[in-house]
Design a binder for these strands. Structure first.
Lengths: 204, 204
DNA sequence: TTGGCCGGAGAACGGTTGTTAACTGAACGT
DNA sequence: ACGTTCAGTTAACAACCGTTCTCCGGCCAA
């Protein structure tokens, strides 16, 4: 493969990652459309012009951040939904989101903030990823016995509700901050129970 | 009252409103934290320093926009929920949101964008308004016969789901653009039906 | 070992930003 | 009628922005 691991490439990836990390940190207190190129390079400790060696502009860096935040999540989500019992699945789903918020809060904040943010390319990238999540969740649901008789459209709707709820839960867990997590988690579990009840009686 | 309607005050309110309008329009393609003071005054046609006669800074203007967008909505929302039959209430709720998006899309976009945006004061103002909506919806639900046996916490949870869903619906109606509104509206109605089903079987 | 490649540095550019101060003139209270 | 208030103007400030061009020096393939 073109997986060259020369000293050259390694150093380049290193500063590229440093740029992404610095941007992510700076984005905790502002939004992407106000983040300056010089601001990021200054935080890393490189010349402003070095930025262009890695990204065309800030929108480009934003899209890369979307991939970094959401790209590696597709495996975990299907796994959590594999749980057969309703309450256990709810528990695992909320736990998954909670751990995500705990381990990488800045990524979560970035997604929540830029999902409807001012940079079109980033909005589109996030929407695309969330759509993929929706499709995968719908596929997971389709494999369950409880989904017998459901139309594809209804299944996709339900999956969308789940995905939207996960994003919302992540955001509220973030806002809750330390101490309020348990309360926010309990609320999210109750909401998921409500949705599960609706699902169970959908075909009545 | 201190409701002075002199020529002086009238002109001041006029340019203040012009600033708000210009800002709202500029915010369709960027977010508040990147909107410049000079940018707004230039669009209105006044000197940059005139801005300070009306707002302390951009965050201040943002909070005023929140009030303008959400302040006059409290009446309408209770009215829509007054509908007794489930499907009729769903219909009215979605219709209310759809009309709101049709008549003032820029306000809706602003709220969706800045709800998790980069300006703390504006985030707080939006959160406060949405909390008020939640309380009012919960109070409306509490008056219904179907809510017998519900705990206050559960009712507030349900109300929160409704409010969050309305915001989400507004946002997706906006993204759908002309032509896709009917599809987005149908999806929103289905989602509300799911929630209503969950509500009906909550105490089973 | 040589010669090209290329990530990064440096300097400079035109333009924009928020904020300050002093000033103007029309609406205002008396 | 007269002095005051005050929304808006003008001018200037230092700081910052994105982008271009030129140059340096270490990696790398031959």
């Amino acid at each position: 493969m073109s997986h060259t691991v020369g000293i050259r490439q390694a150093q380049k990836q290193k500063t590229r990652q440093a740029l992404l990390d610095a941007a992510l940190q700076l984005l905790e207190e502002q939004s992407l459309s106000s983040l300056g190129l010089r601001e990021v390079t200054r935080a890393v400790g490189v010349a402003p012009t070095a930025f262009y060696r890695h990204f065309r502009d800030m929108a480009d860096l934003g899209v890369a951040l979307v991939e970094e935040a959401l790209g590696s999540l597709h495996l975990m989500i299907g796994e959590a939904l594999h749980e057969p019992r309703d309450d256990a699945r709810i528990e695992r789903t909320v736990a998954l989101v909670a751990e995500l918020v705990r381990t990488s809060p800045a990524h979560v904040r970035f997604i929540a903030r830029e999902r409807h943010g001012g940079v079109a390319a980033v909005r589109a990238a996030i929407g695309e990823q969330l759509d993929r999540f929706g499709d995968e969740v719908a596929a997971a649901f389709a494999r369950e016995a409880e989904s017998a008789g459901w139309s594809g459209e209804d299944l996709r709707m339900l999956a969308g509700v789940y995905v939207d709820h996960m994003v919302m839960t992540a955001s509220s867990l973030l806002e809750a901050g330390p101490g309020g997590e348990e309360r926010a988690g309990a609320l999210a579990r109750r909401q998921l129970r409500l949705i599960s009840l609706g699902r169970r009686h959908w075909l009545d």
